[in-house]
Design a binder for these strands. Structure first.
Lengths: 361, 361
DNA sequence: CAAGCTGTTGAATCTTACC
DNA sequence: TGGTAAGATTCAACAGCTT
């Protein structure tokens, strides 16, 4: 523990993270959280359907000449991180599909031992405005030990408590950082383009550190890691090369009140009520494509498509839309309107099938 | 399309996938789904998937040699896949944290263009018995085009329909393959250690192929890809080196009943429907020359010319150009902006007239 | 005050057909 | 091949205002 005396604890260091890391003593921090540039490679502009402009990440710090340059940068800071990490420490590295495969490969190549890949599922992601891909609704965190033999810390009980006494899974549902939590400049614009939600860091820090231990963030940005660390009674070392961000992080941390020691345990988790689209019943074979559906009096019949749409004469669309169309009604709850014919000839309302699926989950 | 005659369609090919891929003509398949082995073995050879390797590591294994051998194998079959893939085709590659970073990096290095990483969230994952990690509750699918300029297929409307008229997200909740769907041997043991659920392949195939197109699976295993392809009216090519699995897959496919043709077709998007110029409505008398058009709030009005142009003050041109001009917007979809006044005085959007014409064709 | 309506926004690799 | 024009495309959360 003597080396900790030399550590710049609870400080925001301004400058290049690789240079700063080289100044830190070896095997000195218990955990690292790194949210490096993603190398998004955006081209042109993107507009929403209402013609408003999307404010994409086009900052200089996210531009690299090519994948090779990005890999070289990644391997350099990861090498220094591994030197600085204690033998029993763990590292979190975060990214999206643009860069996360480079990050994971570099971690493995350097001898880190991956423990989990954790999915941050965004409850409110930005949609895909042009309809050319799936909504990119998540980011990935790779959690790794220093090596395969590491006796790392995992606060299993705390994670289970945080998840209503169920084992914490590798997929986490957490909203974007918006509203009052989002730092803003004097003009009311977001201060940092990619500020992470405190809930995410709360879970990360609680999972792999004990109170008083040191967590290092080489890309501190707006200071979420430092703020949550202080609130949870951990020590932090933050490195940030942009002076504006670093200043904002310092001010933010200064305003944080550490939680009472006994309260640093758990926040209530929001229980998730899964929504079952009709298409799910089709995919799972409960209502195969081609099945005929009927209303209760068998006045109408419709055919199920592989994509979960119904077709009845000219009407095509969701179970609700087609139900409304055939009745010439303004709206219709298709779950209660449509039925399948069972083997014994009796009708069964499809809402009961949905309940079967819900029970399985 | 002539090359398709040479393709071994709807067959299960037994043998090494790289050798078989080299025999297939270039640019011949519309989509590829690959669920490769993620085991590494000593001396660089690979064996088939086996649950036992997750944590057990041999003492004398050389980590670099093993990762290198896995990478070499990955790059070899991905190279052949890229040759066989049509210019506008897409590939799905699936893995877990042990191997998916190698897969994604290899894809990018070979020029593939990642479109999404999709998370298969398991509703019923195996718990982590020792409580040393988060429950590993997901696997990752990487979806990629052949290159950044590819004009790939994405059945956006079908995916949206499958999800109750909300954009399909990158996280999919699907149960493990269990119960009656799981293939078993005579002793009742599972036939294949990693049989994928049909619901997963249903969504994959529906997202990126049209009926009649060809999907290739170089690691067919128990044949889920082939079975779902047949049921959805797609053609398949399956490669599997284990004769037991290959035989089981053949028998499984033979028992599959294809869905009716109209059910297998995905909901066509507007882009895929034949284009109706606005002038057609004028020609056919649905919107006679001289008709006045209004926006929804009747803030502007325009007069229809005999050539299908609009005139509104100084602005003259297509319905789109004039719509954009009066709003001073960068662009405008005139079909949804302009309305005609009906006899009862109510407004009707001209897009509905276009749909009437489409139905008559 | 509650309920409802409007406008804004978030790590974005976001079009295609025709000439 | 490139240039131009047609026309397709959004979800959840929050803030601020009206009813």
């Amino acid at each position: 523990m003597g080396t900790q005396i030399d550590l710049p604890l609870d400080q925001v260091l301004v400058g290049d993270c690789i240079a700063w890391l080289k100044h830190l003593p070896p095997a000195s921090v218990h955990a690292i959280f790194a949210d490096p540039p993603y190398n998004l490679q955006l081209k042109g502009t993107l507009r929403r359907p209402d013609d408003s402009l999307v404010d994409g990440v086009d900052d200089d710090w996210d531009r690299f000449a090519d994948l090779g340059a990005y890999d070289a940068f990644t391997r350099e800071w990861l090498t220094e991180c591994r030197r600085v990490l204690r033998k029993d420490g763990t590292i979190w590295v975060m990214g999206a599909y643009h860069n996360v495969f480079r990050l994971g490969t570099a971690l493995q190549d350097q001898g880190y031992w991956i423990l989990n890949d954790v999915i941050w599922r965004k409850s409110n992601p930005m949609p895909n405005f042009r309809g050319r891909r799936f909504t990119n609704a998540h980011e990935t965190l790779v959690w790794a030990a220093r090596g395969p033999e590491s006796r790392y810390r995992f606060n299993y009980a705390a994670m289970k408590a945080l998840n209503d006494d169920l084992q914490m899974r590798s997929d986490w549902l957490i909203p974007l950082c918006t509203g009052g939590e989002r730092l803003r400049d004097d003009a009311g614009a977001k201060l940092h383009p990619t500020q992470k939600p405190e809930a995410l860091l709360h879970r990360v820090i609680l999972a792999c550190t004990a109170p008083g231990e040191v967590i290092l963030d080489p890309f501190l940005g707006s200071g979420t890691t430092a703020a949550v660390a202080k609130r949870l009674g951990r020590r932090f070392i933050g490195i940030e090369r942009d002076t504006t961000y670093a200043e904002a992080a310092r001010a933010r941390v200064a305003g944080v009140e550490p939680a009472p020691e006994e309260a640093a345990a758990a926040l209530p988790s929001k229980k998730e009520q899964p929504r079952i689209p009709f298409g799910t019943l089709v995919e799972r074979g409960l209502v195969p494509a081609g099945t005929q559906l009927f209303d209760r009096q068998k006045r109408w019949q419709a055919v199920v498509g592989a994509d979960g749409t119904l077709r009845c004469g000219h009407a095509t669309g969701s179970i609700h839309k087609v139900g409304a169309a055939v009745q010439e009604a303004p709206s219709c709850n298709g779950w209660l309107f449509w039925h399948i014919e069972q083997r014994d000839g009796r009708l069964r309302v499809i809402d009961e099938l949905r309940e079967d699926v819900l029970r399985q989950m």
